[in-house]
Amino acid sequence: MSRINDVGGMAGFPAIVEEPDEPPFHADWEAHVFALNGALIRRGVYNLDEFRDAIERMPAEEYLAASYYERWFAAITTLLVEKGVAVPEELDLPDERDRPHG
């Protein structure tokens, strides 16, 4: 079964938008997510294929609602839990800890 990331040829997406003088990252946190992922892969916490897979198995509605680096961060936190590095509650901000985990 194809996953939501497999959009080649799919109809219904809007016109392509170009951003003039676009910076590589739109916020500091995006750069941090990018670097964090590289650090975890090099350290062997997970590999590149596992990272890609973690993005691609996001629920379709979450995948489509997320920005590019929001997807990366979601995949990183998914893998940190699956690899036993952290439990979900530890990844939340202290004031977010009462929200349910899906």
Partner: peptide, 19 residues
């Protein structure tokens, strides 16, 4: 996810880094 203001995700990323 995109309904998180940028400051929230920014804080979450910092939190995970610290952890």
């Amino acid at each position: 996810m995109s309904d998180h203001p940028s400051s929230v995700i920014s804080a979450r990323v910092r939190h995970v880094e610290a952890l």
